[in-house]
Design a binder for these strands. Structure first.
Length: 230
DNA sequence: TAATACCTAGTTTATCGCCA
DNA sequence: TGGCGATAAACTAGGTATTA
């Protein structure tokens, strides 16, 4: 039998939301991904077949509206039902950051997914000027990434955009992930020689203010096994 | 309880249509 | 012609039901 066979609203919600990958697809949609391949970039380990299937399921469940775009391709838009699921997904993010942290394993490190998440995590109000950031990750494939950062948005480029690079950053994938999730603050990574930065002083000095970090990074991790005081 | 068959979910690979 | 967006088909792995 598919689902939980119950009228319970929690069970009904879980039937829709807790299918494998579904919450991640919804998160991507709610964070602004609209096209099939944008969703794929945000969830690179999900197969395209399954992504297509989940989008249809979410459409049937009324969480996604499919509209034809300007170029003849489909656009996927979150509906009000999806928007109202955002507090649930956001709360899961905070909960995961506090309680589901564990040692990062190699298969959790994915350069494409990190870069895609970094793209929307620049603190643009602290960006001193428009600039091009080049990141080289020695142990990743591909290893070279570019961000074209402007006051209004940051664009991720898989290939050299052809603009003059203003600031260069060299690090391992693990270090970049640790900085992103705040396991290792940027200044500490510099002190330890885990990251090399090359660029003008005004950009380098302001990096702590604008460099992308997970929105959950400020949440203090909880001690595992902690028991509530009675 | 173990062996087997069957079912389902998910992955990989190939392919198609469209557009620049 | 190549890249992108999307889907289909074949295959695999894991779970479940059935039977001895």
């Amino acid at each position: 039998m598919k689902g939980y066979g119950s009228f319970c609203p929690v069970a009904k919600a879980a039937e829709i939301l807790t299918e494998r990958w579904t919450l991640l697809v919804l998160r991507e949609l709610l964070l602004g991904s609209r096209h099939f391949n944008q969703l794929r970039r945000g969830i690179p380990q999900m197969s395209p077949t399954l992504l297509s299937k989940r989008l249809h399921t979410l459409e049937e469940a009324g969480l996604v509206a499919r509209q034809s775009g300007d170029n003849g391709h489909w656009e996927y838009h979150p509906t009000q039902a999806a928007e109202e699921a955002w507090p649930i997904i956001d709360a899961l993010g905070y909960w995961g950051h506090r309680w589901a942290r564990s040692q990062l394993t190699p298969n959790e490190l994915h350069a494409g997914r990190l870069m895609w998440n970094m793209r929307r995590s620049f603190d643009l109000k602290h960006v001193p000027c428009d600039f091009v950031l080049y990141i080289e990750i020695a142990d990743a494939r591909p290893k070279r990434w570019w961000f074209v950062v402007k006051k209004e948005e940051a664009d991720l480029c898989w290939d050299d955009p052809g603009f003059k690079v203003d600031i260069c950053l060299y690090a391992s994938l693990l270090t970049l992930v640790q900085i992103f999730v705040d396991e290792m603050p940027l200044p500490r990574a510099c002190e330890l020689g885990k990251i090399e930065i090359d660029g003008p002083r005004h950009l380098v000095n302001s990096m702590c203010a604008w460099f992308p970090r997970s929105k959950y990074a400020n949440e203090a991790p909880a001690a595992a096994g902690q028991v509530l005081a009675s």
